[in-house]
Every structure is written in C-alpha cells, then in structure tokens.
C-alpha cells in the first residue's frame, strides 16, 4: 500500500506512452500509406460499364477472355500528358493483337474535352468516358493516371500508379498474359 500512488502513476505513464506509440504508428489510417498501392491486385477485376466516344456502351463482360490494360487518365492532368507518348508507342506495338484490348477510361473530365484531345493527338485505342465516375470508383482510383492489367480470366495482375513507361506497360502486359516479368 505504501507505493500504491507510485504504481498508479507508473500505470498512467505506461498507458500514455502506449497510446502515443499506437497513435504514432497507427493504425493503417495514414492515407499516404495506401497512396501508391492498389488493394485490388490479385483480385477479380471489378465489373464496370463505360461509354465509348461514339456513344456505344462497353462493359467488362465484353472484355472477358482478353488481356486488358485499363488506363485511367484525363486531358488536364500533367502526368497523363507526360505518359501519352509512351502509351502511343506501346499501343502501336500491340495494335494487331486480337486478344488484347487497350482501354483508356477518362476520369473526372468532360466528353467534349476528350473528343478535342483525341482529334488533336489521333489516339486510336479505345477511349471511353465514365459517367458518374463509377468505373473509377470500382477500380478504387485515387487520381490519374492509374493503369491496371487484367488477365484473360479477369484478375487484376498488376498496376501502375502514376505515369507509365513503355517498359512498365510491357511488364504489365506480360504479367497479364501469364508470361512472368
């Protein structure tokens, strides 16, 4: 009983220190921790429906059995402009592959701005708008550009947060084809 107060003070100190440590290291809620990761890797790709620039509807069902690279981008994002020449080169290499789809989904931008961009740069891969941002949400994007590789059996096998390079895209494509990297 003589040292009860001392023990209680020690207990309070231990609790404060433990609380500080937990808060400092805590608890997985730092948004920066997840900023460059995708929790969808290794999981089934989300179902989505987007609208191509000619007004047709394109859904994930239409892409079943194909190797797909999905690139979220928009016309006002500087890193998207930086990666654009790389996308163009990459697509030119694989344009003839009937089992491969390169899909650009416009995130947080207007159809009119997208059409002006496509007319200016002559992008000849599939470009689609995302009404309501549902596809961007389904892929848990945090910004743009973000690129996902989907295998023919519908699994997300790789991703790139930020601008892609031709080499990076080739690695994603190899992973999606099951060729390893």
């Amino acid at each position: 009983m003589k040292h009860t107060t001392r023990w209680i003070a020690l207990g309070v100190a231990v609790v404060i220190v433990a609380f500080s440590v937990v808060l400092a290291t805590q608890v997985g809620n730092d948004p920066r921790k997840d900023a460059n990761t995708s929790h969808l890797a290794g999981k089934a790709a989300p179902k989505f429906t987007v609208e191509t620039l000619d007004g047709a509807t394109l859904s994930s069902r239409d892409l079943a059995g194909k190797t797909v690279i999905v690139n979220f981008w928009n016309t006002w994002c500087i890193p998207c402009k930086q990666e654009h020449p790389e996308l163009t080169k990459f697509h030119a290499r694989h344009n003839d592959d009937p089992d491969f789809v390169f899909l650009g989904i416009v995130r947080d931008d207007t159809k009119a701005a997208t059409e002006r961009w496509v007319k200016k740069y002559g992008d000849d891969w599939t470009i689609a708008t995302d009404p309501g941002g549902k596809a961007a949400l389904a892929f848990a994007t945090r910004g743009q550009p973000e690129t996902f590789a989907i295998s023919p059996d519908g699994v997300i096998v790789g991703y790139q947060i930020g601008p892609s390079s031709v080499n990076g895209l080739e690695q994603l494509l190899s992973a999606a084809r099951g060729e390893g990297t």
Partner: peptide, 25 residues
C-alpha cells in the same frame, strides 16, 4: 476497406488494433 484499405476510414475501426485506440483513453 477491401477496395482502398483501412486508410479509407477517417476513424479507426473498433476492432483489432483499432480497439486499442478506443480502449486506451
């Protein structure tokens, strides 16, 4: 949480390690 990870929650979950944050005070 499955899509974005725990960081999508502004408050920690009330289980696992998150329980410590609620319980310690």
């Amino acid at each position: 949480i499955d899509r974005y990870g725990e960081s999508i929650l502004l408050k920690p979950e009330q289980n696992g390690l998150g329980l410590v944050v609620w319980g310690l005070p």
